[in-house]
Amino acid sequence: MILEALINEEAVKEGDKAPDFELQRQDGGLFRLHDLLKEKNVVLYFYPKDSTPGCTKQACEFRNQYEVFKEFDAEVVGVSSDSLQSHQKFERVHQLPFTLLSDKGGQIRSIYGVPRRLGLLPGRVTYIIGKDKVVRAVYNSMNKPLEHINTALEVLRSINVEQKQIA
Rank of each mutant, 00 (worst) to 15 (best):
I2V: 13
L3F: 12
E4T: 10
A5R: 12
A5Q: 14
L6S: 07
L6N: 12
L6F: 14
L6G: 13
I7W: 00
N8V: 01
E10T: 09
E10F: 04
E10W: 03
E10A: 14
K13N: 01
K13T: 01
E14K: 15
E14W: 00
D16I: 01
K17I: 15
D20T: 05
F21V: 12
E22P: 03
L23S: 11
D27G: 07
G28R: 08
L30S: 14
F31C: 09
F31K: 10
L33Y: 10
D35T: 12
K38R: 15
N41V: 05
V43S: 08
F46Y: 13
F46M: 12
Y47F: 15
D50I: 01
S51C: 10
S51Q: 12
G54Y: 06
C55K: 02
T56I: 05
A59H: 07
A59V: 06
A59Y: 05
C60P: 03
E61W: 00
E61G: 00
E61K: 12
F62I: 03
F62H: 04
R63P: 02
N64T: 01
Q65N: 06
Q65C: 06
Y66V: 04
Y66N: 15
E67F: 07
E67L: 11
V68W: 05
F69H: 12
F69I: 11
E71C: 03
F72Q: 14
E75S: 14
V77P: 07
G78P: 09
S80F: 06
S81E: 09
S83I: 11
S83E: 10
Q85L: 06
K89Y: 11
F90M: 09
F90H: 02
E91C: 10
H94G: 02
H94A: 02
P97M: 13
T99V: 15
L100H: 08
L101H: 08
D103K: 03
K104L: 12
K104P: 02
G105Q: 12
G105I: 09
G106V: 00
Q107S: 13
R109C: 09
S110A: 13
G113E: 09
G113S: 02
V114T: 08
V114S: 03
V114Y: 06
R116M: 14
R117E: 15
G119Y: 08
P122S: 12
R124Y: 04
R124E: 03
R124P: 11
R124C: 04
T126K: 03
T126L: 02
T126W: 07
T126C: 13
Y127L: 09
I128L: 12
I129A: 08
G130N: 00
K133M: 07
V135A: 01
R136C: 01
R136A: 02
A137Y: 04
A137T: 00
V138T: 09
N143P: 00
K144D: 15
P145T: 01
P145Q: 01
H148V: 02
T151L: 02
V155F: 01
N160Y: 10
